[in-house]
Write a protein that binds this DNA or RNA. Structure first.
Length: 218
DNA sequence: ACCCAGGGTCATA
DNA sequence: TATGACCATGGG
């Protein structure tokens, strides 16, 4: 059976460094993390452009702005009313929290999860890509890919899956670096070879992982 | 016309 | 705790 780290090495060999998170600043990372909830990144890019064009990619500006006006800038991402509210909720926290980066990872994670509209994946995106903490991000692609590869059993919830990855990768040298690349690689790979529509993974760079598993089932 | 996308909250049982 | 409804645009 292939280990999660061997899967990582194959993906890295195939695709190379992913240069995640695609954003100019830590604040832009966190905004993007909220906007991309259940939404394709191409739509998020359009909303980010709208915000930059209005010089509204700014915490104080977003807090001060009317929610309706913010929602109009967020139109391309869908759920724009919900996300305008969530973005404001996040910006209130960010504005009122002095030096959140001074907190240890667990405390920071609890603070982020306490924001209405920030769930486990969004919080972990922020922790890894904005605060550079060694937190493994789980998303729908990760769950689907590793389920199809047969590397995880049952239907683990978010936290169980995150703990599983972090345990399997506990000995790697630079966790922030590897977790960063790994999540980007999973998304890159899954977009191409592990979508909901195209369920079979026959010709990708992880094929032998899949074949080995199928054979091991007898 | 239908399904999906780098989720999360809330009401209900 | 465990489902289901809901949010809503853009691309295949």
């Amino acid at each position: 059976m292939q280990t999660p780290y061997q899967v990582y090495q194959r993906l890295f060999k195939q695709y190379g460094p992913q240069h995640w998170w695609p954003a100019d600043t830590a604040f832009e990372v966190m905004v993007g993390a909220i906007l991309t909830q259940n939404t394709s990144w191409t739509n998020v890019e359009k909303a980010i452009v709208n915000l930059k064009k209005e010089k509204a990619l700014n915490c104080n500006k977003i807090v001060a702005m009317q929610e309706k006006q913010l929602a109009s800038l967020l139109k391309p991402v869908g759920y724009f009313n919900v996300k305008a509210r969530r973005l404001k909720n996040f910006c209130h926290w960010y504005q009122n929290t002095r030096q959140p980066e001074k907190n240890d990872t667990e405390k920071l994670r609890k603070q982020l999860l306490a924001i209405n509209g920030v769930g486990p994946e969004t919080a972990d995106d922020m922790l890894l890509y904005a605060f550079h903490r060694p937190v493994f991000v789980i998303d729908a692609y990760t769950h689907r890919l590793f389920t199809r590869l047969g590397l995880i059993e049952g239907e683990p919830d978010y936290e169980e899956l995150r703990q599983w990855f972090e345990k399997k990768l506990q000995r790697v040298d630079d966790k922030v670096k590897v977790f960063n690349e790994y999540h980007g690689l999973i998304v890159q790979h899954a977009k191409q070879h592990c979508t909901a529509r195209k369920p079979l993974c026959e010709t990708c760079c992880l094929k032998r992982v899949c074949v080995f598993h199928c054979h091991s089932l007898g």
